[in-house]
């Protein structure tokens, strides 16, 4: 029902710009699931969405509205990337865990700022996390323009990260996806356990549903807020550094297409269920790539495909709302 509604509304828009909606949709599906190569692209697109989305599920469960995943993602990418570019670790088995840790810690730090402001000065986390996105973005932009800039490069990007830091592809013949996908897939059950079966997750849920009752039951509100934001930020930061090492291979300003924001939608469509994040990320990843495809084959402007995406999401959320009422 929701899908039909979205397809029809999207179709009307496609007709308005002079495209054949049926062709466009067929192309979208073909372009995303038509070949192993296309599937690989979808999977690659999913990696950051899944990892960030999981972190947001943790935060949203506790009703801590972390809107700053984009900034945490970029800051993780930046600090992790700088580590890879500047710290001469030679052994791959040492280098990769170390750089992933650094990226996650950087994201956690960015999340910690938000939590500290909320705990210490009661700053609403929606505002602080949103604004910190821009801080992270501009710090990143400065870094690739000045200290980390590739002197030989034309565009403001860093040099390529050294080989020992690069995440290779998964050893499956048909599929070309870096091993970040493995990390993402492992994190799904891990976060699932954390959220649903662990004392921490249970207390976070309690805190989200009724903070005062949770506190009366011994949940420390400050500690909970700090831990949740650090964890949420750490996952976004991890996604950032994985994106650098697996996909971009260098730091560049436009390395994020708004993953931190799309992941909010992922977490919400998944109704805050970790396994749902996987499906939601696949759906949104496919939608993004499908948009690229019809831009190329049907001359549908990229902006319109973004509108169609938004329509899909709105219809899904609408249907979800109606079901839960």
């Amino acid at each position: 029902m929701a899908v039909t509604g979205a397809l029809v509304t999207g179709g009307i828009l496609l007709v308005l710009v002079g495209a054949n909606p049926v062709d466009a949709y067929v192309e979208m599906v073909k372009g995303t699931f038509g070949s192993w190569f296309d599937v690989s692209l979808v999977l690659t697109e999913m990696v950051p969405l899944v990892i960030i989305g999981l972190g947001l599920v943790i935060a949203f469960k506790a009703r801590i509205w972390n809107i700053g995943a984009e900034g945490q993602f970029m800051f993780g990418a930046l600090v992790g990337g700088a580590f890879a570019l500047r710290v001469p670790l030679q052994n791959q088995f040492l280098a990769i865990p170390a750089v992933l840790l650094v990226g996650a810690l950087a994201g956690a730090l960015w999340g910690l700022l938000v939590a500290a402001a909320r705990v210490r000065w009661r700053v609403n986390e929606v505002i602080s996390s949103l604004l910190l996105n821009y801080v992270a973005l501009f710090v990143f932009a400065y870094a690739v323009r000045k200290p980390l800039r590739d002197p030989g490069g034309f565009k403001p990007t860093s040099e390529r990260v050294p080989d020992q830091f690069v995440l290779g592809d998964v050893p499956v013949d048909e599929i070309r996806v870096h091993v970040g996908i493995v990390v993402a897939l492992l994190l799904v059950p891990l976060v699932g356990f954390l959220v649903n079966r662990s004392p921490f997750g249970m207390r976070a849920t309690m805190f989200g549903m009724n903070p005062e009752a949770a506190q009366a039951a011994g949940v420390n509100a400050s500690k909970m807020t700090l831990r949740i934001m650090m964890l949420s930020g750490a996952l976004a930061g991890l996604a950032g550094i994985i994106q650098v090492l697996g996909s971009e291979l260098r730091l560049s300003n436009n390395m994020s297409t708004g993953y931190g924001f799309t992941a909010i939608v992922v977490a919400l469509i998944a109704r805050l269920r970790p396994f749902g994040v996987l499906l939601a990320a696949a759906f949104l990843g496919a939608l993004t790539l499908g948009g690229d495809v019809i831009q190329r084959t049907q001359q549908v402007p990229r902006v319109l495909t973004m509108v169609i995406q938004a329509i899909f999401v709105l219809f899904l959320l609408l249907a979800d709302r109606r079901r839960s009422n």
Binding site: N210, E212, A213
Partner: peptide, 12 residues
Amino acid sequence: RRGLIGGLSVAV
């Protein structure tokens, strides 16, 4: 407000 979490089961 302080003694119950309505969204969770009686058991919890």
